[in-house]
């Protein structure tokens, strides 16, 4: 089954910030990492990714700068995380933990789900 984009929408930012935590990166690299880390269960659309970039940049969570790839020499727009981006990421993580805890209470496990009553 594939993941519903409505559910994951609120967490695209979290994934992007996680990937930018150590070092700056660019569009395709990020989408590739998301695909890789999610074991191809989630493939982010280009428009979704770019929309997240512009929104987070406007909010000051990330900053963009042009840079050249050392290997290929191709110029790309790179993004790096800002301090308020790190703060926002911590918030989102806390929010997720809470969400997971609450929703988790209502998720049936094992045999019980298969029974009719």
């Amino acid at each position: 089954m594939s993941i519903s984009s409505d559910v994951i929408r609120g967490y695209n930012d979290t994934m992007i910030l996680y990937l930018l935590w150590e070092k700056p990166s660019y569009g395709y690299e990020i989408s590739k990492q998301i695909k890789l880390l999610s074991k191809e269960k989630y493939i982010i659309k280009e428009t979704t990714l770019y929309s997240a970039f512009t929104r987070m940049e406007k909010n000051g969570y990330i900053a963009s700068f042009p840079d050249q790839n050392n290997a290929t020499g191709k110029r790309r727009t790179y993004y790096r995380i800002t301090d308020s981006g790190r703060a926002y990421y911590r918030e989102k993580c806390a929010e997720w933990n809470l969400t997971q805890e609450v929703v988790g209470k209502f998720i049936m496990k094992g045999e019980r789900m298969n029974g009719d009553n």
């Binding site: 660019y26 569009g27 395709y28 690299e29 989408s31 590739k32 280009e46 428009t47 990714l49 770019y50 970039f53 512009t54 790309r76 727009t77």
Partner: peptide, 20 residues
């Protein structure tokens, strides 16, 4: 300018993906 930028960024990503 915003729309140009969006188009160029999207093109970059598509090109990268296609090449790979």
């Amino acid at each position: 300018p915003e729309i140009y930028r969006a188009k160029n960024e999207l093109w970059q990503m598509m090109e990268d993906k296609y090449t790979e």
